[in-house]
Amino acid sequence: MNIFRLTGDLSHLAAIIILLLKIWKTRSCAGISGKSQILFALVFTTRYLDLFSSFISLYNTVMKVIYIMCAYATVYLIYGKFKATYDGNHDTFRVEFLLIPVVLLAVLINHAFAPMEILWTFSIYLESVAILPQLFMISKTGEAETITTHYLFFLGLYRTLYLFNWIWRFYFEGFFDLIAVVAGLVQTILYCDFFYLYITKVLKGKKLSLPA
């Protein structure tokens, strides 16, 4: 555990909590892509199956359980409790265009051709692109609530910090996982445009809106 890994995990946790609180406090999930949230729930479910097969640490177990529970709670709020506020008309990203290539890639390029390993690889690949329906929704409506941009910022920051974590682990532990690193790079790159808008607009007190 190094500082990048820890702050990365906390950033991830912050993102998840910010989104849950936003929906809960405003009693609305307007502007949130339910499709992205379903994909994230799928990511956690397929990655954390090892909760049943191996114990790493109390920290590891607790964080995994929190992530999974929050992911399903978010999906429930969007498609259940606050369904009336869900903006399905703008959440039109074709998820099969992500899922099919990701399944194929996970079957073809993995560390070992075993069910658990393929599911883990699938979750890594899927996570790297799971935010696309959300970004697509924002580009379609041309704007995002400020609290939604904070969510996206912490979610993007998390994988960026993991990149530094992997550099650290490469030098000090000889650890290197090509699949995680490449997927993490892709994931981070997808946020670059958003990071730019966040820094130049939101942090200066302006609402994030895109030119028509």
Partner: peptide, 10 residues
């Protein structure tokens, strides 16, 4: 086992 070492991450 290849690829098993990273499973301590989240």
């Amino acid at each position: 086992r290849p690829g098993s070492c990273q499973k301590d991450e989240l």
